[in-house]
Design a protein around this nucleic acid. Sequence first.
DNA 1: GTAACGTGCGCAAACGTTTGCGCAAATTGT
DNA 2: ACAATTTGCGCAAACGTTTGCGCACGTTAC
Lengths: 342, 342
Amino acid sequence: MQKNKLPTIVEIAKKLNVSASTVSRALHDHPSIGLVTTMRVHKMAKELGYEVNKSAIYFKERKTYTIGVIIPNLSEPFFSSALTGIEDIAEQNNYNVIIGQSLDNFEREKRIVENMKDHRVDGVLVSLTKDTSTYDHFENLKKYNIPVVFFDRVPARKDINFVACNLLSGMLQAMTKLVGMGHSRIGLINGPAKLAATLQRLEIYFKCLKENNLPVDQDIMVATTLAKSDNVKAIKKLLALENRPTAVIVFNDYVVLDCIAAVKAAGLTVNKDISFISFANLPIWEYMDTLPLASIEQFAGQQSCMATEYLFKMIEKSDKASTSNETYFQHIIDSQMIDYSL
Amino acid sequence: MQKNKLPTIVEIAKKLNVSASTVSRALHDHPSIGLVTTMRVHKMAKELGYEVNKSAIYFKERKTYTIGVIIPNLSEPFFSSALTGIEDIAEQNNYNVIIGQSLDNFEREKRIVENMKDHRVDGVLVSLTKDTSTYDHFENLKKYNIPVVFFDRVPARKDINFVACNLLSGMLQAMTKLVGMGHSRIGLINGPAKLAATLQRLEIYFKCLKENNLPVDQDIMVATTLAKSDNVKAIKKLLALENRPTAVIVFNDYVVLDCIAAVKAAGLTVNKDISFISFANLPIWEYMDTLPLASIEQFAGQQSCMATEYLFKMIEKSDKASTSNETYFQHIIDSQMIDYSL
DNA sequence: GTAACGTGCGCAAACGTTTGCGCAAATTGT
DNA sequence: ACAATTTGCGCAAACGTTTGCGCACGTTAC
């Protein structure tokens, strides 16, 4: 009394007084089945509205034709556009996508990985939680032969596959622009220390300063937890300096939105008293009155698409041999400065 | 040589010289298995790193603990926040979410439904393509006992389950506000005629005019294809009128963004020369300098959550009895005006 | 007329787990 | 000491499909 029974291969077989194997082969137009039988089977299948039960096949094949995507938050445009690209490629490969949002919660990320393992996804794409610093839960997937490709927020280690974005290229463009405009005190509002992106920004910030023969000044380097109130606190700290920076590199567009508001609230003018360069290139700037000078595009879609394509290659490979070769795919896309000051 | 074999219940059984059934029961702490055996099984399971193969169970149970979500586009904030809610509830119910974006393409919607059926999802949530006018592909899911709940973009028929949003309530609030502010010429920039939402807005626009004893004036009613250039064309047409409206109801927040830009470009002032009320309540307004007077919130998250919760009830029910009772869940959420003029 | 081959199909195992039923041994009751 | 009950476990079927192997029949070749 459970569920309405759907027609199976066995029922077709019974009605036609043939064996299930014959039906199976007939449905696949296997040459070893006679033409008449094949046609009778097809006819009966149509009559009963038979459709193959793929979950039986998946189970037998130990495949699910499903990939898992783990991202911090779906409502962030960066990730939703990443997901858009992933879904599109998956669709072309006849794969399904199951999603899990970690909400930047490490425990939840672990649960999601567990869950995806239980569902025996064929592969996983991950953009890490900002708190993720251990990777056992991903390592564990190797036992199940589930390949993992990281993108954007990737672990700081060498034995993984990832696609990330090289912020240096875009940042250099930005610094060059700022210096060209006459800025010489360029501050930094960075993110949480745990994030790889934070360290990365710090490094390239230093590099860019050096490249332009500017001194490092700890006073104009602050950090935020990314919480709104903390963003405001960070910019206020810079504004309060007697010798405040005339330009600031900001962790991302969300932070800069708060900064802009704080600058206005302080009675100052953005792009006159202080200018901003930010990361993310949210699709909102074209509609705003007050903009940062530029934002550095990190190509969410391209990153995720490349990661997905590589994941599919790995899946294909692991379908054939179980010998996991120990070479890693590590691709870094160049970021690009999008200039809003024109 | 296919895949690394994972430890199974049978292997535990062999190593321990007991039967597979005993192992299965022991792992579930079934009372009919002796304490010592149970402990030995648990120990061995741990030793081998055994973890139950859920896809075997899913197959046997004819369940997948997965729901499908079909939406037009992931990158629209409305749908991504809807998805956020869905994923959250699903996670709480230990369900997975597989997504498909129709990209407003009817054929693609059909393919996705097919695919989800093949994967034997336990239920489906849908927000329709703007071109969807036949529903056979959803009807077909009934054969497989896959319940469907529509949300936001719902079919115009009675024999379905849905959660939608009643725009009238929020719109009445908005009109009342406008009239209270002294506006008497209130225009409309509507969307493409095909969209159900367009007809809906037109209807409530008429109702609201009537309610406030305002005349219908075809001159101040225009439409846009939602393309940027067309949005600008629409607002320019209104601005060019000798007797132009002092307030305009706009199809959605994206259109109003273009309108605001056009008004500024024309040397006029938003909220003085002309005011806007819009639909969608994008999360960007709090950062903008120039806002519409108000936006009408359609509660993406609440709609999708309610739809999801009902879907789970249906799934639960269909797990027990196959008798599909013919009562339908049709819930309409009141929209609400979010006032930005305060 | 027999050997060789081709055609068309069925048998059974396999994928991993759960569960109703039954059987033997151990325990209890009288 | 014998019956009645409980305890602990195994057998086998089931979920739906695929596939290697083999069998029987018919055809062709010499």
